[in-house]
Simulated scan of single mutants.
Amino acid sequence: MTDLGTTLAALPLFGLIRDGGWTMWLIAALSVVTLAVVLWKLLSLWRLGVWGGRHSARAIALWGQGRRREALDAVRGRPSARARVAQAAIGTALDPRFDDRAAREETARVARQALYRSREALRALELIATIAPLLGLLGTVLGMIDAFRVLQSAGNQADPSDLAGGIWVALLTTAAGMAVAIPAGVALSWFESIADRLQSDLEDLATRVFVAPAQPVAAPRDAVLRRPGPTHLAGAPA
């Protein structure tokens, strides 16, 4: 245990955290939380299938061609958010137990669940991006107070190098707070853009199912050729 403490104390980063005081420890903890949230969010979005959409696009294309059962089979059991919403829209549209209003409400329910999952943990990143620089500023203010208190107690015998060292350590917390807040803010903006794109795609999927009804399958060419011609009027030459 002693060897581990000696090793950590020898690390430059550990020394900076130790010299920065309790606010630096809080900022360091926020940095670990930020990294964990970002990694978890990436895994969650990958499981949600936000970067997919091939199966839902194929289902909508089949729906527009009137191949309704094939459209439903294209997304049946698919785990991605777009596929689940497309399955809900197409399935309820084909189910006689659902009228148009009930089908839209069920599809909206599935879409809301997917959007909620896409926005999970974003409030945590927003909070970290807000409070990390404030903690850094608090640490700087407290450090400056200590530095000037030492200067006051020393009087005319104050060493300027000691004052400069205290100010340097105090400013360290501000830099650390910004170093945590900037990546958290960037990750937050990126995840929000992904959620906004997903919401737009889900609305488009539902609209293309409910507002643009499936077209009937075109009649075979042979059936068109066998269609009877117009009936001749009486007395007209055959």
Rank of each mutant, 00 (worst) to 15 (best):
P12G: 10
G139F: 09
A158L: 02
A179Q: 08
A81E: 07
W46V: 14
H232D: 12
R226Q: 14
S56L: 01
Q215L: 15
M1H: 11
L72E: 08
A187D: 05
A83R: 04
A89P: 00
R112W: 07
D95M: 06
L225Q: 13
D159G: 07
M178A: 13
D73G: 13
S161T: 14
R78Q: 14
R197M: 02
L39V: 15
L45E: 02
L94G: 12
A212Y: 07
R123C: 02
L35Q: 07
A57F: 00
R47K: 06
A103S: 00
I194Y: 01
M24Y: 10
V169G: 11
L138E: 06
L225T: 11
A108M: 09
D204T: 13
L188N: 11
L205I: 15
V211H: 09
A86V: 01
M1T: 12
S189G: 08
A88D: 02
V75K: 04
I194D: 13
L142Y: 04
A181E: 01
L42H: 06
L30P: 06
N156M: 14
L8A: 14
W46Q: 12
R68L: 08
L48R: 05
V32H: 00
F14A: 15
T231W: 12
E203Y: 05
W40A: 15
Q199F: 00
A195N: 05
T6L: 14
V33Y: 03
F148L: 00
W25D: 12
P160R: 02
S189E: 00
A102W: 03
L62E: 01
L125S: 02
W190A: 14
A170D: 05
A103G: 05
T140S: 03
M1Q: 11
A103Y: 01
E192V: 02
G15L: 06
A184S: 06
V209T: 04
S153F: 03
V209A: 10
T23C: 12
A223Q: 12
M1G: 13
T174I: 06
V141I: 13
A81Q: 08
Y116E: 15
P228T: 07
L125Y: 08
T130R: 13
H55P: 00
A223L: 11
D201T: 04
D159K: 08
L39T: 14
G143H: 09
